[in-house]
Design a protein around this nucleic acid. Sequence first.
DNA 1: CATTCAATGCAATAAATTTGCATTGAGATT
DNA 2: AATCTCAATGCAAATTTATTGCATTGAATG
Lengths: 142, 142
Amino acid sequence: MCNQCNYENLLNASDLNATDNRLRVLEVIGNNSYPLSAADIFTTLKRTCSINRVTVYRILDLLVERGIVDRISTGGRAFYYGMAPNENHHPHPHFYCTRCGQMDCLTQDSLNVDTKALWKTFPGRIDKVEVRVDGICKNCMK
Amino acid sequence: MCNQCNYENLLNASDLNATDNRLRVLEVIGNNSYPLSAADIFTTLKRTCSINRVTVYRILDLLVERGIVDRISTGGRAFYYGMAPNENHHPHPHFYCTRCGQMDCLTQDSLNVDTKALWKTFPGRIDKVEVRVDGICKNCMK
DNA sequence: CATTCAATGCAATAAATTTGCATTGAGATT
DNA sequence: AATCTCAATGCAAATTTATTGCATTGAATG
């Protein structure tokens, strides 16, 4: 849950008009404590407003492209979306339950990833390092 | 490229009959120096034998389920497949070029991931830790 | 020779996402 | 005020990737 990010500012800073729909999508993502699928976001929005599925996808694409939101791959077929790293959101690994599809955020230091060497020697451009732990969550273990 | 794994033994050790198709799929994966998509594997096989796309998917599922092959997520929509860790193949991170879709293996120690703490404290079951670097590869940078 | 069953093929379906084209509405231009 | 423009959105259809259901085959077994 994020109480610190000003979504309107985030959009403006990326030269995006802060439309109602963009703000709504960003709020759903930012106010959630774990990443959500496009379907999750769409379903949530549908409850309180009339928005098209395609619009959600397009907004997500835009937010990812501008680096406001992170597209996170799962062990499954759908992407999940969470706030991209910024002053209020630090990069962190995720846990994906292969049984129920729930994705959780792990603390930044639960997995220690040292990327310094790679950044120095890699002959291309590095945009992002994604760390995902797959397994069965506490709930599904019961 | 793997000259050490005996694919027939790998299959037998998992109680799988070493059918021609299974061996072929495993050879394509094992003899390649980077992970391949199901489509890559299918296309490669099609060149030299008659096999159905569905058979490839089914064999891949089976190999993944038995832990012979790893299903690796990319920044894109398709899964990629590479040899699962065994005595000849150590776990390692991957690089995914978001421009051309090429996936490369990084050396085991180019990224230092320390998972000890997580294993001790995580309240569910951990099956796999996937580390993927996304960016633009050397070729696409030109 | 009949039976069984794992392996495979083929067609249809599903899930997630993307594309093409139409509509709308707020602000700029005449 | 009427018109124009363009970003934002909607709707239907298409695409991509993967999965399912059911039929066929062929080797092994009784």
